[in-house]
Design a protein around this nucleic acid. Structure first.
Lengths: 242, 242
DNA sequence: AAGTTCGTTCCGTGACACGGAACAACGCCG
DNA sequence: CGGCGTTGTTCCGTGTCACGGAACGAACTT
């Protein structure tokens, strides 16, 4: 019963924002009356909202989600550095953590000219095709890289790396440079530079700057992203992590 | 059963970040075996996390909460203006919406010198003792003000307004000025100036700048916060709201 | 060693979740 | 206008699984 409620909520994963009852049924495999009753219960709890015949995620979930300590503390500690990074570069800035073989974005700061990116707060993307993901991957130890490379590499654009050997060398380069690069592998026309964030000696997050290809300049961005990552790492020295 | 799960998750409302099983029992009124089984189920779903004998909210909830469209869209639209406002003032900036008789904070931007404030993203405070709350209250029509004034006014500090007449005149001043003020009513030593955000003719949010009392200057802050609120209102013209 | 407090497991009972079936409300097409 | 597919809603008998008292074990206190 909790599991079925979870199935329903998990339907809302992508950017589709509202669903009809019949859509929930076919995506969860639940019979109609069951989904109907469950959805009604979820609405009563404020976890779903209903307008007409469409269901969407409810405000109560936002409030609960914002209280998750692991995420909240990291975000709170990181925000000033993300601000610095944004002001220094005036480009779109990301903070992400690893969750299994994906990167989950915890914060995203941008100005009025937001890029069209697949990254969304709370959303996940493959580690192998984002800047933040590569930074996490390069500094998380060889076992993780092996595991990623054991599966076929997913891709988001035609330029996403799908060749294991190429990824392997990209990670090695990142390790020596302390920075990870990504070129139109997550979104066409957008490049990215990322740096790992450490706490107690292990990577706990990574932050990145995403910028239109034509405006990309490693010389300009590298020091800024490196500075921000080091500053955050220093603050986290004894703090969150695992 | 869903309700009981909701009870458990609602325990985590305040800033206490982790609870033991027995604490969950006494706060929910659930018998021990029931809470135990439910907590285990929630852990399995990723909605709770368990370390040793302590439970905390799980990462899955963060991801779900970040997808709530009503909040996400507003935050996304507002972020560039919050950035502008922060850069113009270099003070702590808030974005909040109304939820019943409370304000819920949707975003909060600050630099390295974060103020010690009771406001937290996803957290709620009484409308009557915060800048954002007063702005929402002053421009939401008289029925809402009447309803707030029908209850005894809650307070967060000794200087929180508890006299209905005082609040009434404060709201009237806010209405003519287009700005709401707050002086150490939410946190000692912190003052605040706030402006309403409109979409389709009704208030949908408010944003504010909070600043240490000694640094407060209406002349400096008022134009900045007004500009940001108007800019956001313009972007939202046909967008979210309700 | 005796006493608390807490987490965990067991298990018989009964409430309530379950979902097939039937119904109702639209929208579509001929 | 009438037949048809689709979708949301309600009913209700069946069976399951959530329920929680009781008992157990571990850890800590006095």
């Amino acid at each position: 019963m909790l599991d079925k409620a979870g199935l329903i909520l998990d339907c809302f994963a992508p950017e589709r924002e509202s669903y009809r009852l019949s859509e929930l049924c076919e995506r969860t495999g639940l019979p109609k009356p069951t989904a109907h009753r469950l959805a009604a219960d979820l609405v009563r709890l404020g976890w779903l909202e209903r307008t007409g015949h469409r269901y969407r995620l409810g405000a109560k979930l936002f409030e609960l989600g914002a209280r998750v300590p692991r995420r909240r503390d990291l975000r709170e500690a990181a925000l000033p550095f993300l601000q610095d990074l944004f002001e220094a570069t005036r480009e779109t800035v990301h903070l992400g953590v690893r969750e299994g073989l994906d990167v989950v974005y915890v914060e995203r700061v941008h100005g009025h000219d937001a890029l069209r990116l697949p990254s969304r707060i709370g959303g996940s993307l493959p580690l192998s095709c984002t800047g933040v993901g590569k930074a996490l991957l390069a500094f998380s130890g060889p076992e993780l890289a092996d595991e990623v490379l054991a599966h076929p590499l997913r891709s988001l654009t035609p330029r996403s790396i799908t060749d294991p050997a190429l990824l392997r060398t990209a990670l090695e380069k990142a390790q020596v440079a302390g920075l990870a690069y990504e070129e139109e592998e997550a979104a066409p026309g957008v490049s990215c530079i990322a740096a790992p964030v450490f706490a107690r000696g292990t990577v706990v997050a990574a932050l990145s700057v995403a910028v239109p290809r034509e405006r990309f300049s490693a010389a300009r961005l590298a020091p800024a992203v490196r500075t921000a990552a080091l500053g955050l790492s220093r603050v986290l020295r004894g703090g969150p992590g695992g």
